[in-house]
Simulated assay, not measured.
Amino acid sequence: MQLYNTLSAKEREKLIEDAGKDRLTISFYKYAHLGNPEVFRNHLFIAWNELDVLGRIYVAHEGINAQLSVPADNFKKFKQHLDSITFLKNVRLNIAIQQDNKSFLKLKVKVREKIVADGLNDTTFDVTNKGIHVGAEKFNELIEDPNVVLVDMRNHYESEIGHFKNAITPDVDTFRDSLDIIEQDLKNHKEDKKLVMYCTGGIRCEKASAYYKHKGFKNVYQLEGGIIEYTRQVNDKNLENKFLGKNFVFDHRRSERISDDVISNCHQCGKPCDNHVNCANEACHLLFIQCKACAEAMNDCCSLECQKVHNLPFEEQKRLRKGQKASNKIFKKGRSQVLKYKK
């Protein structure tokens, strides 16, 4: 019984090209109490591998977090399989605004301690006791209310290229960093302010909404389906779009443009730019913002040092990388000292 990938990313990419069929990029999540995540993981892999599903799926005792792509002509079967699982019946699916057949190139279903790393060890905290979900229209009304505090629950490199106007955008590297910072900053407004949160697809602010209710906040709201579903509703219902710039996404596309506003800068020259790239030096692979001019001048690298390494013969690069661990700066997502105009 096959429970793992047998094809490389390059082999899968060629199969997708040869098939010539459209694929749908989809994300969804569901908090639930799962007794045996390992058995559930294996069940999903077997079923979805047969449907040619590709993506990154995390399963834990607290539920499932899935980002994937599925052939368009298999979508009906995929949805039927989801509906056959009791806690996933009619689960909301966030379908990407901008599609890319190569958004994912492998099927990875992994068992994790949690579907969203939060650093919390409070056994009295119930993640299913969530805040009030609101759609795009109600969200637009709420964020104009002077009695509302709007908080972006994403990391700095996400909000740097796009966020809602008037939102608080915590300068954090991880979701777990933001929880205590926000609680501390708003500790005097647990009863007199409405706390409204948003994130990419809803999973982080749903956990945050349950956490802040647990911490005593009385009026907690979250944007249903996150920025992805908000954009869909704005387009479908012809609502005012209050999001500025791009929505960062965690697949090969890296972002979806929501408005024409460019609110960030190239980390190398400072000119307006919101294009995230990874440093071409495989020993670095730092995520940063780079304009086309700098990409050409720097050979897609983040620094002169990386450019020199990238220009070496491939076998020499491999020799230099041998035995070396990835630099921690890759996890700083644009905070590296080699970047002159970083946030």
Results as ranks from 00 to 15, higher is better:
F40Q: 07
N42R: 02
N42W: 01
L44C: 07
L44P: 01
L44Y: 00
L44A: 01
I46S: 09
A47C: 07
W48E: 00
W48K: 04
W48T: 00
N49H: 15
L51I: 06
L51Y: 03
D52R: 14
D52V: 00
V53E: 00
G55Y: 01
I57K: 02
H61M: 05
H61P: 02
E62W: 12
E62M: 12
G63S: 05
I64L: 13
N65C: 06
N65M: 06
N65Q: 05
N65W: 08
Q67R: 08
Q67V: 09
V70I: 15
P71E: 07
P71V: 10
A72W: 00
D73E: 15
F75G: 06
F75D: 04
F75V: 05
K77M: 09
F78A: 09
F78N: 04
K79Y: 05
Q80A: 15
H81A: 00
H81L: 03
K89S: 11
N90S: 07
V91L: 06
V91I: 14
L93N: 06
A96S: 09
I97D: 10
I97E: 08
Q99K: 08
K102D: 04
F104P: 02
F104S: 05
L105K: 08
K106N: 10
K106E: 08
K106Y: 04
L107E: 04
L107K: 09
V109E: 00
K110Y: 09
K110N: 14
K110R: 15
K110G: 10
K110P: 15
E113C: 02
K114D: 09
K114N: 12
K114F: 14
D118Q: 08
D118A: 12
D118W: 03
D118M: 14
L120G: 09
N121A: 13
T123C: 00
T124E: 11
F125C: 09
F125G: 09
D126I: 03
D126N: 14
I132S: 06
H133N: 12
V134T: 09
A136Q: 05
E137L: 07
E137K: 15
K138A: 03
F139K: 03
F139S: 06
E141R: 15
L142E: 00
E144A: 15
E144Q: 15
E144F: 12
P146N: 10
V149N: 02
